[in-house]
Structures are given as structure tokens and as C-alpha cells.
Write a protein that binds this DNA or RNA. Structure first.
Lengths: 168, 168
DNA sequence: ATTTGTGCAAATCGTTTGCATCTGA
DNA sequence: TCAGATGCAAACGATTTGCACAAAT
């Protein structure tokens, strides 16, 4: 319950949802060179549902518990990183101390509600970014992340210029 | 030595550089309601030079040490946050566990070299972002951060689509 | 049987806090 | 004088790691 926006799922992910149940998940894990263990299947089941999700390790751990699956927090971390390494997830950094893992692995961006710690997808096709300078020296662009931090009304302090100039 | 790009300084910051020396710094701190203590002056001196900087607490602490100023790490953190609260700095989150503080308080974006942990400014005027959707419900946009992650050659794994679609 | 994964608890890392001491106005 | 700062060390929260045990091929 973090995703207000329905967002399109990559086709190669859709086939592993409730549609196929465990079978699809098992296949997908195998394809990644990951043994389909009880814990990984459970976590994958929670993650790769019909809607995209943004979860922290802690959140996923809690969910697993509630779903009656005993998984240690360490394993949740391990699994999230394995999934990320295999391209099944994307790590999103918006807060200093916490990592979010995003099941939407397509290019897209985020609203981040600082009050609630909620991430909301902004589909890539809605936005266009122009005038991006060349990557420095012999470096190449790996990823472009746009984070729009929003707050529920009421500006506090922060006296000054509008932070980012955005032409909509 | 983190800033390859010369970037324009806001005028109200320029007057506190080596030009005026301590005097300007003292005044500026006072204006923020912060007592110009030895430590704050030293840190401000290191931070607000002619070029914009991106530092972590740890880095600044080390620098202070090297400059012969004894400041506890706790005070470095306190000071960075006070400066940030007063709008003298901006906090930039690009890595999971670490916070960067940026002396450039104008709207702008960043290259982030994941290999080296180096931030490089992208002046705001070079970039334009179009098609940003409305902020959700009763929320308002607080800040827009674009982070272009770059790596020094050699793609590793990461099989898939280019992360963000960017038209330059 | 082997290899790989898991759980636990301890270790780490960046950051924050409590509190006694110091210092600037 | 005395509110406000600093330093230290302990507390913290998120994440990682070491190692004995369990499960998958």
C-alpha cells in the first residue's frame, strides 16, 4: 500500500505474478542463478505482485512475518541485494539512512513525500530532461534519477529561492 | 578539491570569502543567530571559500584536523546541520549511508561518480525538466533533485534497458 | 554429498544524544 | 553571569558479517 499510481509492468515480470503462482517465481529465480528457497520465494511473492512497490528491508521483513513466513532480517537484506544485483529490483536512495527497493525496473522517477517516507512513481515518459551536459572525462552515464520532494502543505523555515527551477 | 566546475556564487555568499576574511564570516553567522565560535568560524572558513564544495561530515572533520583546528565530530555534525537549517548549506542524498553537504545553495543538480563518491555540480540553467506531473493531492513541491550517476568506463552486469531516458 | 542459503548474534558505520565543562556576549 | 556551545563517550538505527546449522541439487 505504497503505490497510488498504477504503473505499467515490464512484460517479463508480469508472467510471474499470481497468474502463474509459484511456478513462475521458481523459474525466474532459476534464470537468475538463485536457488528457489522457501524464503526467496516468499519474498519474491510479496514483492512481485500486480502493482509496483517500494519497500525498505524492514517493511518487507514485517510483511513476511505477517504473512506467516519466518525470514530473518539478514536474509531479507541479502535477498534484496541479490534481487537487485540480478536486475529484479532497483535501489532508490532518497533518505540519508534508509534504502528503498523498487520493483519497477524501468526508467522512471519519483515523488518522495518527506513527511511519510512514501515514494510514488513518475512514469519516465511523462518527463523529459533536456540539456544534460556530457558526463565528466572518461565517465559514462549509468543512471539518471529525478526525485521530487513534496510535503503536505505548510512551508516551514527555509528562507530563500525556490530550490529547483522547473518548467512544466 | 572536489569541484572541477567553477560555478557562480550567490552574491550574499561571496562577501564572506577570503576577501573579507573572518570579519565577513562573523557577520554572516551573527545574521543567522549563530554565535561565531572558534569552531564554527573554522568550519565556515573551510566551507565557504571561492569554490563550491561538497563535503561529508567525516571529510570536513579531517580537514579541520589537518588545518590544526580541534573540532569534535559531533560538533561538525551539529554545525553542518545548523548551517543547513539556516540555509547556508544544502544537504544532498546520493548514497545510502552518507550525507553530503553542498555549499551551493542555488537550484542545481549533480553528477555523482559512484566509484569515487565525488559530486559535481550541474548548473540549473543548463538543464530543463519538462512534463513534471502535479504533486500528489494536497502536497507541494519542496525541491527537485536530479542525480546523474556516472561510472568510469566498463559496464558490469546490469542487463537491461538504459535506466533513464534522457534527451540531450 | 556438495554446495548454497539461512539465522542468529555480534560487529560496523554513520549519525545523534546526554551531560559535564567551557566560552562568548 | 549565563545562555548557548563544545567534547566526549555512550546510544542509536540501519546494514553487514562470521559462523554453525539447514536445505536444495
Amino acid at each position: 500500500m505504497i503505490q497510488p499510481l498504477p504503473s505499467p509492468l515490464p512484460t517479463h515480470l508480469q508472467d510471474l505474478d499470481q497468474a502463474d503462482g509459484q511456478a513462475g517465481l521458481v523459474a525466474r529465480l532459476r534464470r537468475c542463478g538463485l536457488r528457489p528457497t522457501r524464503q526467496r520465494l516468499a519474498l519474491a511473492g510479496l514483492l512481485f505482485g500486480p502493482a509496483d512497490r517500494h519497500v525498505t528491508a524492514e517493511q518487507l521483513h514485517t510483511e513476511a512475518d505477517r504473512a506467516g513466513v519466518r525470514v530473518s532480517l539478514a536474509t531479507v537484506y541479502n535477498t534484496l541485494h541479490q534481487f537487485t544485483d540480478q536486475g529484479l529490483l532497483r535501489e532508490v536512495v532518497v533518505e540519508a539512512g534508509r534504502s528503498y527497493f523498487d520493483t519497477n525496473i524501468l526508467g522512471h522517477h519519483h515523488f518522495f513525500e518527506s513527511d511519510t517516507g512514501t515514494l510514488i512513481d513518475i512514469p519516465d515518459h511523462e518527463i523529459s530532461i533536456a540539456g544534460l551536459p556530457q558526463a565528466p572525462e572518461g565517465a559514462e552515464i549509468e543512471r539518471v534519477d529525478l526525485v521530487v520532494r513534496v510535503r503536505r502543505r505548510a512551508q516551514t523555515t527555509d528562507g530563500g529561492t525556490a530550490p529547483g527551477t522547473v518548467q512544466t
